[in-house]
Amino acid sequence: MNEKPLLRVRGLTTEFVTSEGAVARALEDVSFDVLPGKTVGLVGESGSGKTTTLMALMRLLPASGRITKGKVWFNDTNLLALSEREMRDYRWKSMAIVFQGAMNALNPVMKVGDQIREAILLHDLMDRGAAEKRVRDLLEMVGIAPARRDQYPHQYSGGMRQRAMIAMALACAPDILFADEPTTALDVMIQAQILQLLKEIQRALGLAVVIVTHDLGVVAEVCDEVVVLYGGKVAEYGSVDRIYNHAQHPYTQRLLESFPDINNPSETLASIPGTPPRLTQLPPGCRFEPRCHVKINRCAEVSPPLLEVEPGHYVACILREGKEANFQ
């Protein structure tokens, strides 16, 4: 890990004001690195803060949410210190995002090709003619016939829409691609194709990717590093090998057990009893404590620090041993 990270997220903390006026701490002290050309997976249950993390990184949180603490270093620029005007230059040109396939992420009344070209022209990257050629090249790259640039999103299938979304994300040649559950709501065959496409594009363009998913199979297939989020905090963070084969956080362990194993098909699937914490009423100690199967009394009292249990492998659990993480 000698290479300089492209993106360094440090102590990212966000707060949302709910419609009842309560404050929900959606993210607390989230830190991780994204290396050039590598893939980081953000994993966790619904409401664990995966999507919020991506939105916070692009500074696109809804009006009810705000970033209260932390730094997001893109190369040597702290994105959180930029003005909105300056931040707009980073969006799509430095970091682009692919939304969920189920989402209505393409404008229904605009031709797909126009929506892609719009991003190129917006950032003044090239003239209209060159942009038009790039639109066709991009569509071809993701496996869509360039002739279909003049069609509208409703004339595309779900998988094609997702391909078009990927083509659009690549329009300004970003350094980092965020993918928010890119395969959710697609059928299994299409899921595999889209993942394959993402991998190929990443390899060809040397892109860094941050992928949000609750599908551990996807993580194992595409990720180099994994950040496991629970209740808005990092539970465990490390390389995909360490997380999958040597998970140390009780939550990660139970999460992995709750996935089917092809080698033991008869095994009944484990589930984690209980529900994730309510972000407006967080427990004072470890957020996983109420559901933990190995907890001790102290777990309900102290919030566990993130410990470096081995180089590059971090766990937020007081039962583990290691020195407190100190990210540069």
Partner: peptide
């Protein structure tokens, strides 16, 4: 509140551009 508005903002458009290009027609 539609998703494609978020896409437009993610592309780096100003709020006004989003409003005129993606909001108005819909």
């Amino acid at each position: 509140s539609e998703d494609y508005i978020l896409t437009a903002r993610a592309k780096g458009m100003s709020n006004f551009q989003v409003l005129m290009r993606h909001g108005l027609r819909n």
